[in-house]
Computed example of a mutant assay.
Amino acid sequence: MLRTLPDPHHLPAFDAAYAHAGFATHLGIDPGDPPRILMLYGSLRERSFSRLLTEEAARLLMQFGCEVKIFDPSGLPQPDSPEAVGHPEVEELRALSLWSEGQVWCSPERHGAVTAVLKNQIDHIPLAIGAVRPTQGRTLAVMQVSGGSQSFNAVNTLRLLGRWMRMITIPNQSSVAMAYREFDDAGRMKPSAYYKRVVDVMEELVKFTLLTRHHSAYLTDRYSERCETGHKAEAARLAQDSGAIA
């Protein structure tokens, strides 16, 4: 199910004086509809710092003119379990991935890797549903939170997953160390260099999404797949001709 974003327009740590406005205008392109961004986070704790960081990033994306949806993973079954077949939460997640033009994945680092909660969500999204690819060509931004010193193990794993899912993963990323120090009692991120990096990452995601939104199909078009499609079409034609002759 979708998570409701508290205080969506309240940005106490954001200084609008230093923010770009009208990314599409700066890029010299037609903005069209608002960029559609799906956000996934990787912890079910009541005070989940990956969720709080995701929500902070979501507010920034809304400030930048995006339509944002945050998926709540609390109701997802395990992949490949009998309960997963036709499960409404699984179907919703796949539909949201199809809806999105870009995504944000945010995970805590646990045992030097992403959490099962985040990986569970990605594992429910197949590379292909028939002829439709729910992730291919979408832009992706990756973030992580850590309880200790700064690390990049989780974001590195998320980059690997993004590449495997055939997504356009942007260069910038966010890794927030000692996350328990970076959020106030209300769950809002305090002003810091970490917060500024989150702004950087979300700005870059919007730019890449706008730049690639009309070109993602071409950018992800593959010679090997064109060959395979051509061979299948030729085989079907030959089979049809043989049937007509018989």
Rank of each mutant, 00 (worst) to 15 (best):
A179D: 02
G102Q: 03
L27C: 05
P34R: 09
M167G: 01
S97F: 01
S175H: 03
E228F: 07
E204I: 04
V201A: 01
Q150P: 06
L161K: 05
T209H: 01
T25E: 11
I122E: 02
M39F: 08
R237C: 08
P134H: 00
F183W: 09
P79K: 01
A154S: 06
N172T: 14
D200T: 13
D80N: 13
Q121S: 03
E46K: 06
N153D: 08
R94C: 05
S48G: 04
P82H: 02
V176S: 09
E91F: 11
A58G: 05
I70T: 03
L127D: 09
D241Q: 10
C106T: 02
M143A: 12
M165K: 11
L11E: 06
V206A: 01
A113L: 09
P35M: 14
H20W: 12
M178K: 15
G148H: 04
F49C: 03
L127G: 08
S48H: 05
I122L: 14
A217K: 06
H214A: 10
A186Y: 13
S151I: 03
E92Q: 11
G28L: 10
D30F: 07
P88Y: 00
E204C: 04
R110T: 15
L205S: 01
A154K: 02
D123L: 12
E91K: 12
S151M: 13
E91D: 15
L205R: 00
L96M: 12
Q136A: 15
T139Y: 04
Q144E: 10
G187M: 05
L219P: 03
E234F: 11
A57K: 00
S224W: 09
P35S: 15
H26D: 14
G130V: 03
Q136Y: 11
L5T: 00
G102H: 02
R197Q: 14
L211T: 08
Y195C: 08
